[in-house]
Amino acid sequence: MLSNDKQNDTTLPLAGCRVIERSRTVAAAYAGRLLAAMGAQVVMLEPATGSPLRRAAPVLEDTNESALFAYLAAGKHSLICDLSNAAGRELMARELANADILLDDTPLRERGAQGLAPEDTAARYPKLVHVSVLPYGATGPKAHWDAEEVNLVHAGGEGFLLPNGLSCEQFPDRPPLKVYGNFASYQGGCAAAWCALSAWWAVPTTGGQYVDVSVQDANLAVGAFALQRLGDGSLEHRTTRSFRYGGVFEAKDGYVEVLTLEDRQWQALVQLLGEPAWALDEALQDPLERSRRGAELNTHIRTWMREHAVEDIVSRAQALGVPAAKYRTPEEVLTGEQETARSLFAKTTLKSGRRVDLLTAPFQFRCSPLPGGGRVPALGELSEEVLQ
């Protein structure tokens, strides 16, 4: 049906899985992106004007293409399908008849008229996994609400907790806005992808399912550790939420993050620091005492960090067994030794023909490495005739 080498590669984990994606949000589009990365054939049903994500920031200055859309759409296909008319709905019906999974973030108020009500899809396509991806889910008092990324970050609790640590200390007057980019939506997309696969694998025994994914719920799950603190009466806040010692430190020429969660890591950190007298205090052998004196410890550690270069700190720390890493620029990430060894990035062709490096997936498979790469589809690249 489609001449795409990646989709014809039967060694990929999701080879043979066909996904129809109706997305206007990052969460649903990212779910499709993850499935496409694993070898599923993902077809985006777009309106004649194209997905709004095609115009989403940030935009590449030289080609005026959305960098966000390029990442979310790589490896997919595009088919124009206007569900406001009968012809479009019939086209979608033919596509769903041959699909395994439907990713759908259509607002509830529009689903009935567009033929996407879950009871209708269940009746017409008994083996289809229909995954609803909405900000607050498809049930409950907020099911009809829309939400931007900033709303979802705060609804999931992270907005109350960030920025914390060094960022909060350096800029205490800054309001808690949101994590850069689409953190909340990516969490929702991950949940939607895994739920879709769980339901799909169960089709031989249970048939198709309707899966209701809430982006807010997915983000609450990420912050479960902060929520469980409510059980002991404590309340996390961005000014107090941090590791008692460790965290982000400013070095001579950049920033380093150090976390010592185990006794052996603390002992290694003491070695890294040159075994200063303050660190050899017998009382600091007790992890609870170290936590109680976290602010004091960090004062000493910061003084030492400012006197040393990042690369020297990280290389010595890792040799000693201290969990430490450098905060790197995007260029450094692309050319990093770890990223290169794991083939995390691959060349992808944009609609303009420009070739760029894109993250293949936030994971890899040992027995069937993901090829990545491919291309970003032009709007409506697939005609109805080709699909037939």
Rank of each mutant, 00 (worst) to 15 (best):
D146N: 14
G208A: 11
N151V: 14
I101K: 05
A67W: 02
I101Q: 02
E282D: 10
E95W: 05
I80M: 09
R293N: 09
V333R: 02
E332D: 12
L177G: 08
G208T: 07
T303I: 08
V203Q: 01
E148L: 15
N219F: 04
Q170I: 06
P118E: 07
Q364V: 07
L230E: 13
Q271F: 00
G189Y: 01
V42C: 06
A86D: 15
W278R: 11
D173P: 07
A147K: 09
V203P: 08
T63M: 06
V42T: 03
A56V: 10
A70W: 01
L261W: 03
K142E: 08
L96Y: 04
W194H: 08
Q7G: 10
E381T: 11
H300C: 13
A70F: 00
D173V: 09
P377H: 00
S78F: 07
Q187N: 15
A15P: 02
E257F: 12
V333W: 10
G207S: 10
F363Q: 09
E90F: 00
R375H: 13
L297V: 07
L60F: 13
L344Q: 06
H130A: 11
S167A: 14
A15I: 03
L2V: 15
A29L: 12
G181H: 14
A40E: 14
D281K: 07
L96E: 06
L387P: 01
E236T: 07
A36M: 09
A277L: 05
Q364T: 11
R55K: 15
E119V: 13
L284Q: 01
N298P: 06
L344S: 05
E339K: 01
L116M: 06
L261C: 03
S132M: 09
T349Y: 01
A319V: 13
N151P: 06
A184Q: 08
G321Q: 08
Y71I: 07
